[in-house]
Each structure stands twice: as structure tokens, then as C-alpha cells.
């Protein structure tokens, strides 16, 4: 009886484990099939046509996503590395632990709430939607990711390197800035890539900030489109043609996100070995 229970238990563990990846495999198969047929040169290089018409593309989304990611990086990367240094220095003090928890809280805020915040901070003041408000919303999501990966990368540097630098007569700040930080750079870049993968796929914070734009726009004070936003709008529309575009867009976005995540992981592993 005991052995029977055990066998059933093992069976269920294996069964549920495999069952859990069935939707995922199905999902991948679908997205590849439906997305692949939607992608062609026109798709990647032209702007959307009016609803209902065949053809057109997602260029506005591609360019918009680039602009948003570039701006968000500009805001978050320097600040994130700085705050990562801060958390690293104070990690053994109560004050540092408290701030660390605050960053965890920031990371846990639902992205729709972040969108509301950016709306209230910027869109409401400017009285119109803009790329810059979308970028700020994305920065609030990007920031904790960079902060944590900076802090963790710094913590992986062995104390002996700090000692060697100090024993050469270097001051502590110089040691951090010229030895520890450069050695952690690969780990930090890993975090940045993961973060970009994350914000590239965020939609909710852009709904009330960047807002979307069927045209190409390089003015950061005006609304801008983005890949995830296009997916959302096209999916919820009644047009067959736009549904097709949604799948194509989704496939591209998935490929970008998976690509960024894998080079981030591989880069991190290689760097960790070197230490």
C-alpha cells in the first residue's frame, strides 16, 4: 500500500510537471505559426494602413520602442548604478536593509499603477501624452532591476581585490570606482539587458503616457507608439488584418525579449567564472 501511494505520488509529480509545459509549447507553436506568416519586408518597414485595409506595417512601433527604451535607459542606468553602489555600501546596516526593502517594494508595484504615477507627474502637467512620460514610467520599472543587479554584481567581487587595491595605497573611493566597479561591469550589463527585455514588453505603463501613435514620431514631447502597445490595440480591434499584425508583432517581440534574456544569462555565467 505504501509503495502504491509512492508510485501514484511520483506519477502525479511527473504528470503535472509535463502538463505544465504543454500550454507553453502550444503557445510557442501558435505564435511561430501565426506570426511567421504575418512578417515580411513591408510589415517591418511601413506604417499602419487605416483600419480594415490590407497591408501596412509596424514601423511606428519599432521606432517608438527604440525611442522609449533609449530614453528610459538614459534616466535609469546612471541613477540605478549609483543607487546600487549605495545599497552595496550600506548592505550591512539597518538603513541599507530598509532602503533595500523599499526598492523591492518599487519593483513590486503593478505596472498600471506606475502608469498612473507617470500620468499624474507628467502628462497632467504637460496636458498631453508624450514619449518622455512613457520613458519615465518605464524608468520606474527599469530602475529597481538595475539597482539590484549592480548591488549583486558588486557583492560578488572578492574582498581580496579590495584589499589588494587598498594595499597599493589607493583610497577607498578610488578602489570602488576604479577596481570594484569595472570588475562588476559585466554583471551590471547583464542586468541592463534583462531590464531592457522587461521594459520592451511592458504595455500598461504606456497606456496613459506614451499613448500610441499611428505615425512615425521623433519628438519626445509627443505621443509615440511601441510594439507591446500595438499588440494590445490590434488584438482588441475587430479587424482580421490587424489581428494578423498582432501575431507578427508578438513574434518579433518574443524573439527580441528571449534574445536579450539569453545573452544576458550567458554573459553573466561567463563573467562569474572569471571571478
Amino acid at each position: 500500500m505504501k509503495i502504491f501511494k509512492d508510485k501514484i505520488f511520483r506519477f502525479f509529480v511527473i504528470f503535472f510537471s509535463f502538463l505544465s509545459i504543454v500550454p507553453l509549447l502550444f503557445f510557442f507553436f501558435t505564435i511561430l505559426k501565426k506570426g511567421f506568416t504575418a512578417i515580411n519586408w513591408e510589415f517591418l518597414t511601413s506604417l499602419p494602413k487605416p483600419p480594415g485595409e490590407i497591408g501596412g506595417g509596424i514601423l511606428n512601433g519599432i521606432v517608438g520602442s527604440f525611442i522609449l527604451i533609449f530614453l528610459a535607459s538614459f534616466f535609469s542606468i546612471p541613477t540605478g548604478i549609483f543607487l546600487g553602489l549605495f545599497l552595496y555600501e550600506f548592505s550591512d546596516k539597518k538603513f541599507g536593509e530598509f532602503c533595500n526593502t523599499l526598492i523591492d517594494v518599487l519593483q513590486g508595484i503593478p505596472s498600471i499603477v506606475i502608469g498612473i504615477i507617470a500620468y499624474l507627474w507628467i502628462v497632467k502637467q504637460m496636458d498631453h501624452f508624450s514619449a518622455i512620460s512613457g520613458a519615465i514610467a518605464l524608468s520606474l520599472i527599469f530602475l529597481p532591476i538595475i539597482i539590484k543587479s549592480t548591488k549583486e554584481s558588486l557583492q560578488m567581487i572578492p574582498f581580496s581585490l579590495i584589499e589588494s587595491s587598498l594595499s597599493l595605497g589607493a583610497t577607498y573611493p578610488r578602489t570602488i570606482l576604479k577596481v570594484i566597479l569595472p570588475c562588476s561591469l559585466n554583471g551590471i550589463i547583464s542586468g541592463i539587458l534583462t531590464g531592457i527585455g522587461r521594459i520592451a514588453g511592458e504595455t500598461a505603463p504606456l497606456l496613459f503616457t506614451a499613448f500610441g501613435n499611428p505615425f512615425l514620431n521623433f519628438n519626445i514631447l509627443k505621443p509615440v507608439s511601441s510594439l507591446p502597445h500595438l499588440i494590445f490595440v490590434y488584438t482588441m480591434s475587430p479587424y482580421e488584418n490587424w489581428h494578423k499584425h498582432a501575431w507578427g508583432c508578438a513574434l518579433i517581440l518574443v524573439i527580441i525579449v528571449l534574445f536579450l534574456n539569453s545573452i544576458s544569462k550567458i554573459g553573466f555565467r561567463r563573467w562569474k567564472v572569471k571571478l
Binding site: 581580496s160 587598498l166 594595499s167 597599493l168 570588475c183
Partner: peptide, 16 residues
Amino acid sequence: RRRIGMVFQKPNPFPH
């Protein structure tokens, strides 16, 4: 520390 240098047990050249 520039007048008195130190060499540690485990060699630790700066990896970067």
C-alpha cells in the same frame, strides 16, 4: 601603503 607593499597568499591580479 605606498611605502610598504603587500603580497597576499592567493595571487590576485586585477581581472579587468
